[in-house]
Every structure is written in structure tokens, then in C-alpha cells.
């Protein structure tokens, strides 16, 4: 069975959930081989994690020489690895960075690339992807017809399923050209953790928009009562009320949680683009004509400053 390369999503060796989703998907297509860009002393810990989701191999690419140089070196390393391993597909968790890696890799390998798949199934002549396009208004199925299919897959595209893999660790030493190191990170400031779940991975997202008037406390309080991540519309971000990292929509994050609660958000097409595929959608908005109500499973016409604090209290009561 041919290998399917899965690029591991991790923060300093802490493996993130999309990795397990991708390994689960990779098992439908072939034999998953995880590719870990990171420090070799974290390799065994990573291997322990990913083998539980079926990784037969774990290629370790020491990132000491490449971190801080954006995406070009990663694409080079993946090209060399792909030429050695001859995988039947390369899967990457969708992020801006990985989409760029995928794009470069496609050109290097002479392969087609598909971005932001929400599902991947085996098909005749290779994997068939599902994508959600035009702000979620269309569902498109596509496949790569040339070279090694390179596919980036959005978070929450599969439920991780455990399956024991060998998890054999194999160091891969890539040769990185000087040209690939043309752009360098000269300073980096980590964002402070809020202690809340990560926006793109969360099962529940509670967002606020211009209708908060700049006071996100009701939104955050309600989010915390539900154990949810907090999101924001671009209007709220542009007003400086929330950092850009919280933005949901076309130019922010795409989320696809079990539950999305939009508060004081009108539901512009660019916002929908980032949340329309949520399983259940709820909105609180004082305007009964707000377009967001066309999307909802449940809506409250009312002032979020009254509704959310009262709801928060009730949820907390129920939890006891």
C-alpha cells in the first residue's frame, strides 16, 4: 500500500487535533506517514501520539535550519521527501502557511493542488475532494488529475478515529537552498493565550459584532458558560475591539463548529463565508430583518446586552 504523507500540525511538539483528522482521512487513501517539522528531541513524543491514529511512519525533518524562513524551505523538504517516498497523496492541514507550502510543492512536483477540502474520499484514479465554495453556497467535488495529489484539508473535516500504527521514526535530512531562505522572520511575538479553546477547533463558537458596541463582556461571559471559543466580525476587529486573530469570515478564520452563536452580527456574505457550514447556527440580533436570521436554526430578536447575561446566568445555574 502506498504512503500518504500527512504534515503534522503542532505547536512546539504539542500535536493538534487537525493532525488526527488528517491521519483518519489518510487511512482511507493508503498508509499514513506523518511528517513532523520540528525539533528531533520531540520526535518520540509526537510519534507516540500520531501512531495511535494509524501513522505507520513518522518522518522527522529537523527544523533548526528552516524555522524563521517562512514556507519555501518546507516546500523544498517536502519535495525531496516526496521524491524519495513516492506517496500517493500529500495532505496538509489548511492554514495560510500550509496552503502556500502546498502551492509551491505543486509547482515543484508538477502536481495539481486542491485547497480547503472539507472531505476527501478515495475514488477511481485518486482521491476525490469536497470543497465548500462561494461563501458556502456551493459544494464542489474535484480531483487532481496530474502528479501526486496535494490537498489541504480544513479543520473539523473528519472525526478522528483511533487505529494503531507502527509509528516508526525516521529522520529525513533535507537539503535547503539559500534561495529558499530569502525571507526571514526577524521578530516574533507570541499571542497571549486566553485559556479558551482555539477558534478553528472549537466545538462551540460564540461571536460578537458591531452590535456589541465594543463591550465584549456579554459575549465572553456566554462563551465561557458554554466552554466555547470567542469570535468576532470584521466590523468588531476593524473597530479595534478584538484582535484580528478572532475574526471569522472570508479574510479571517473559517470555522465549522457544532454550534455557532452570532451576536450583534448582521450576517454579511463575507462573514457567512467563514461560518456557514456550522452544524447549528443561533443568532441574537435586535433587528428582525438582519440577514443572519435567514441562516439560523434558532434566533432571538433582542438586545444582546440583556439576552446574553441572562442566558449566561441560566446556563451556569443548570450546570450547578
Amino acid at each position: 500500500m502506498s504512503e500518504v504523507l500527512v504534515v503534522v500540525d503542532h505547536a512546539d511538539g504539542e500535536v493538534k487535533k487537525p493532525t488526527y483528522e488528517l491521519l483518519t482521512i489518510a487511512r482511507r487513501l493508503g498508509e499514513p506517514a506523518a511528517v513532523f517539522f520540528g525539533s528531533p528531541d520531540k520526535a518520540d513524543a509526537v510519534a507516540e501520539k500520531v501512531k495511535r491514529y494509524g501513522a505507520a511512519k513518522v518522518y522527522v525533518v529537523d527544523d533548526a535550519q528552516i524555522k524563521g524562513f517562512l514556507v519555501a524551505p518546507k516546500a523544498e523538504a517536502l519535495q525531496q521527501l516526496a521524491e524519495q517516498a513516492q506517496p500517493s497523496a500529500v495532505l496538509l492541514p489548511s492554514s495560510y502557511e500550509n496552503k502556500e507550502v502546498a502551492g509551491r510543492l505543486a509547482i515543484k512536483l508538477g502536481s495539481g493542488v486542491i485547497t480547503d477540502a472539507v472531505d476527501v474520499e478515495p475514488g477511481e484514479g485518486g482521491p476525490v475532494t469536497t470543497q465548500s465554495v462561494f461563501a458556502g453556497n456551493y459544494t464542489v467535488r474535484a480531483k487532481v488529475t496530474q502528479g501526486t495529489p496535494i490537498i489541504t484539508v480544513k479543520p473539523n473535516s473528519a472525526a478522528p478515529e483511533e487505529a494503531e500504527g507502527a509509528g516508526t521514526v525516521e529522520a529525513f535530512s533535507a537539503t535547503i537552498s539559500d534561495a529558499a531562505r530569502g525571507a526571514q522572520v526577524v521578530a516574533s511575538q507570541p499571542r497571549q493565550s486566553t485559556g479558551r479553546p482555539e477558534l478553528t477547533e472549537a466545538a462551540i463558537v460564540v461571536s460578537g459584532g458591531r452590535g456589541t458596541g465594543g463591550d465584549f463582556a456579554p459575549v465572553e461571559g456566554f462563551a465561557d458558560s458554554l466552554g466555547a471559543a470567542v469570535g468576532a466580525s470584521r466590523a468588531a476587529v476593524d473597530s479595534g475591539w478584538m484582535p484580528h486573530a478572532y475574526q471569522v469570515g472570508q479574510t479571517g478564520k473559517t470555522v465549522s463548529p457544532q454550534l455557532y452563536v452570532a451576536n450583534g452580527i448582521s450576517g454579511a456574505i463575507q462573514h457567512r463565508a467563514g461560518m456557514q457550514t456550522s452544524k447549528t447556527i443561533v443568532a441574537v440580533n435586535k433587528d428582525p430583518e438582519a440577514p443572519i436570521f435567514e441562516l439560523v436554526d434558532f434566533g432571538v430578536v433582542g438586545d444582546l446586552h440583556a439576552v446574553l447575561p441572562a442566558a449566561t446566568e441560566k446556563v451556569n445555574e443548570r450546570k450547578g
Partner: peptide, 27 residues
């Protein structure tokens, strides 16, 4: 190098329940 097999309009979401908040009934 990629080929679209089919494209389908997303089925419209079924209309949800909308309530109007009065004296805390919304919460």
C-alpha cells in the same frame, strides 16, 4: 491538473425558529 467533477448548490437551510425577547423570555 485539477478537475471539478460536480458542483451543487447548497440546499437552503430550513427556516429556524425565531423568538422575540420580552422581559427575559429570549434568554
Amino acid at each position: 491538473w485539477t478537475q471539478v467533477e460536480d458542483a451543487a448548490a447548497r440546499p437552503p437551510r430550513t427556516a429556524g425558529e425565531i423568538v422575540t425577547d420580552e422581559d427575559g423570555s429570549g434568554a
